[in-house]
Design a protein around this nucleic acid. Sequence first.
RNA 1: GGCCCCUUGGCGGAACCGGUAGACGCAGCGGACUUAAAAUCCGCUCGGGCGCCUGCCCGGUCCGGGUUCGAGUCCCGGAGGGGCCA
Length: 857
Amino acid sequence: MARYPFRETEAKWQRLWEEEGCFHADRDPDRPKYYVLEMFPYPSGRIHMGHVRNYTVGDVVARLKRRQGYNVLHPMGWDAFGLPAENAALEQGVHPKSWTYRNIAEMREQIRAIGCSLDWRREFATCDPAYYRHEQEMFLDFLERGLAYRKEGWVNWDPVEQTVLANEQVIDGRGWRSGAPVERRKLPMWYFRITRYAEELLAGLERLERWPEKVKLMQRNWIGRSEGARVVFPVEGRSAALEVFTTRPDTLWGASFLAVAPDHPFSEELAREDPAARAFIRECLRTAASEEAIEKAEKKGYHTGLYARHPLAGEGAPERLPIYIANFVLMDYGTGAIFGCPAHDQRDLEFARAYGLPVRPVVLPPGADEAGFTIGEEAWLGDGTLFRSGFLNGLPVAEAKRRVIAWLEAHGAGRAEVTYRLRDWGVSRQRYWGCPIPVIHCPDCGVVPVPRDQLPVTLPEDVDFSQPGNPLDRHPTWKFVDCPRCGGPAQRETDTFDTFVESSWYFARFASPWREDRSFEGEDVGYWLPVDQYVGGIEHAVLHLLYARFFTRALRDCGYLQCDEPFAGLFTQGMITHRTYRDPEGRWIEPGEVRRAEDGRLVTLDGRPVVVGRVEKMSKSKKNTVDPTTIIQQYGADTARLFMLSDSPPERDLEWTDAGVEGAYRYLNRLWRLVEERLPELPPPGAGLTEPVGPEERALKRRIHQTIQRVSEELERFHFNKAVALLRELSNAIEAFRTTTPSGRGLVREALEALVSLFEPMIPHLAEELWQRLGHGEPLARTPWPKADPAWLAEDTVRIVVQVNGRRRAEIELPAPAGEEEVRVRALSEPGVVRHLQGREPRRLVYVPGRLLNIVL
RNA sequence: GGCCCCUUGGCGGAACCGGUAGACGCAGCGGACUUAAAAUCCGCUCGGGCGCCUGCCCGGUCCGGGUUCGAGUCCCGGAGGGGCCA
């Protein structure tokens, strides 16, 4: 029997879809729209299996929705700015632009080979001035509205990438891409005021019903809302007071010191007069800025010799508190100053023990007694009752917080305050291959925005990568311009945007990508946005996905868009993993360099023993990758797609195995043969519905319609593995069904058509081919999704399990619907049941209609 | 350290609201076809026992306890693994 000729078939259908424009989407107010988007790729040069899984999942949704009658927008583009292009320039002497466009050309063909239902007319690359000019305009709008600003501050510096990183891009104290430990540097840079939207971004999560809880939780934690109070501590002998943020104002009576951040203005002022303070501050700032690093570092402080008056001194709190400069206080969280309450904060406790400060418990844990309660190695962080705390005595923590805040507000000594852990998004990067920030620095006028009629500010092409640092800054002419305001000599900003800026609005650009004068066509974005189903990796949970939510709101407030949320539904697919292998010397080796020896053990191609390692995420460094292009050439795109969808639920990690791919390939051939073998006996297409005769035919008819129903539901819920299992069951049933009657042959046609049609979103090429062979002129891509006939969803008999004391003893089959009385009579006469009753009288009968009867003795 | 999630055959996984645990596959074993192999097809496949081909019984969803007529599913405690924030 011939094999399925996948090469010809896949090429044929891809050509046909393209020629017919099957996947072109245009605004049509009369039809409901559905926008499916997968996170667009960085053009690194080759696609990897993660891309294939991502696009396959998105394509199943797009094809399903299209056939359900939606006007489906499913575009593809390129996240084309970024550092790897500059590294390539450095290593290979190729210009970042040509490297990028060459990669795009290659990857476009690789992605096309997967056979996704994409509207390629809308493709764009973010490195195109036609794209980034709009980003520059958005920035100018942000600038006017105070959503973008420039400030000098301590930043995370990636020594490998030679650029600044945002907080979200520092993972475990290291650059998210380079993996190098980040350093602290003080630099002027541009920020987006994401903190203005902290509350809205947090509240908006509640309405994102089709987002994974896990992602929402991560964003919630990242935004990190905390309620507390700002408390004013006058400093003795100084006119200025220190303002402190605390989430535990209830513990004010337990205060034993104040601590300020090393880069707090108060510290900087002291440093001017006190060389020891200056030295201490310098020491602190040398260590990394991350919260994690600070948490792990030894708690160190410098006693300034100054004291603060406790605002509650008159209410029995300690009179005066020593002021320290401390390495564990962060300038950009709260007010950059804290009061230390060692009894009820672990960091404060460690600090107090190191510097001999008093530890005064003021919250009594439930069940403890006032006289005997002391703090040992662990601060008490839990709830309890206030004591030794003046007018708070006897109150629980929550109530004490309210009371003390009311007192502070009444006495002008503080107020309730909400703070967030979220920091403003630093977007300056000292790189060439990014969108230029459209401002000019004038010695007289300061920062001057580039006039809108001079946009876009384009990158110069003649750049020199032979030296480290930012080539834009070194360029002989590019940055030297006249000030647009005074006409005097001035300089362009040489920082470019973080590449996460481009990906923060690309989904909206797909609505009207050909528009030159404006970023978006109002009617287009109004029609297409928000994205109905976004698909991508979970690694962007707090990076891209948070930035895009912010950007959408900022664009809304600047009048670009009407919607708040960019992505109404989000699906995060799991990673692709693969077994790792090493040679006897311990070097990683590729799966292709491993073979099975005659004795069954794994050896290298030259016969040396292989050390089998763990199953890990596919990565170049571990050499456990499989190239999708090779797989597609060897087995076809449908095989890769089916394997991706078959066994593991898409949100979980998927282990790539040769056996799994072979299995998918074998099934496609079996499906091909199944149709080919039955074709001669089938009635012509469109002969109308078949009325089944006899129990076997009725059973097949029911299975067809139950499969239509259930596959539709499972695809809708992203349970692709279950949809595949159901379809394999249907195809097993067709194989087992032998017939010679006209009605039987009609049923086989109905079954095969349902099978092929339902499989189309997952294995579109083979499905189209078989659909055509079944005699249809219109491609499946344009054929409506099948509908189950409700009359055939119900079984005409019911099987009821009979239990005695919760243990299965018999199964009875009755015509549907079966009444309880009927079931009871039949059940009690079943031999298996009688045997276990042993003549005893049932105490109770529990009947679950249509399912089960439990006889309780 | 805090919060969250997960744990089902040799493996991936299924089991809807608490109602027949192991669907569908992978791997394995046995058989058919073939000179042979590949491909394909048929059968078996959680463990133990009985029965001796029709089946029947016991145990079994990480461990311990609880709720319930009935728990993989709910509750409490523990172990192991993962994620996020520290």
